[in-house]
Amino acid sequence: MFFLGTHTPKLDEKGRLVLPAKFRDALAEGLVISTGQEYCLTVWPEPVFMAEVKRAQAMPMTHKPTRDYLRVLLPGAETATPDKQGRISIPAHLRAVAGIERDVVVTGVGDRVEIWDPQRWADYSTGAVAAFASIDEAPEA
């Protein structure tokens, strides 16, 4: 499973998102929606989410950033299974965190999918593209 591409669907009146067709098979067995970084939502295939949780839990609990990460990632997370039309419900508390109303940007980011408010995505991607354009690393000897 490898997610890539950018899509611009709309949520329906019940807060449901129709997943892009090319993402559906990889998410059909179950997924987890959680708070993402930069105020987006992250949709993980359930096994990938569980691997991420295990990775984070392997860090010492005396490490404050680890505690913070788990405290943001887990309490608001929701499990879901897409319906026959490929729809998932985005809970209101997660929509509020991401500032999502009706229009969304759905991006494939390798092992996961992100859901963004269009303006937040535009602001973030403008800065990220500029930073990407200026990367100039020296080759390793």
Rank of each mutant, 00 (worst) to 15 (best):
D103I: 04
G99T: 11
L94K: 08
K84F: 03
P91G: 05
S89R: 13
L94C: 06
D103N: 15
E78F: 12
P91V: 08
I88A: 07
P75I: 02
G76I: 00
D83I: 10
G86P: 05
A77Q: 06
G99A: 09
A96I: 03
P91R: 07
S89W: 07
L94V: 04
P91L: 09
H93D: 03
V104S: 04
Q85R: 13
K84T: 01
Q85E: 11
G99P: 07
V97P: 01
R102M: 05
T79Q: 15
R95W: 03
A77W: 00
I88M: 09
A77S: 15
Q85P: 01
A98S: 12
Q85F: 05
G99R: 14
V97K: 11
K84Y: 01
G99N: 08
I88G: 06
I88C: 06
P82R: 10
A96D: 15
A80G: 13
I90H: 11
E78C: 14
T79A: 13
P91M: 11
L94T: 02
S89E: 10
G76A: 14
G86A: 06
V97R: 13
V104T: 12
A96M: 11
E78P: 00
T81H: 08
K84Q: 11
E101M: 03
S89Y: 10
A96H: 05
I88Y: 06
V97G: 07
D83G: 04
H93Q: 13
R95M: 07
V104N: 09
A98M: 11
A77H: 01
T79D: 08
D83L: 06
R102H: 14
H93W: 03
P82E: 04
R87V: 08
D83Y: 09
P91C: 07
E78N: 12
V105Y: 14
R95A: 05
E78T: 13
K84G: 05
V105A: 08
S89V: 13
V104M: 09
L94P: 00
A92T: 05
I88D: 12
E78R: 15
R95P: 02
Q85Y: 07
G76K: 00
H93E: 02
E101L: 03
A77V: 10
E78W: 12
P75H: 03
R102T: 14
E101D: 15
V104L: 08
Q85G: 05
T81A: 09
P82N: 12
P82M: 09
I90C: 02
A96P: 00
H93V: 03
P91N: 12
R87L: 06
H93P: 04
R95N: 02
G86H: 02
I100N: 03
I88K: 02
P82C: 11
P82V: 10
R102D: 06
V105R: 14
G76V: 00
H93A: 09
Q85W: 01
A96W: 00
T79N: 14
L94H: 08
G76C: 04
I88N: 09
I90M: 04
A92F: 01
A80S: 15
I100D: 00
P75E: 04
R102G: 06
I88W: 08
A77G: 10
T79R: 15
H93N: 13
G99I: 13
R102L: 07
R102V: 07
A92P: 04
K84N: 08
A96T: 13
P82H: 11
H93M: 02
A77F: 00
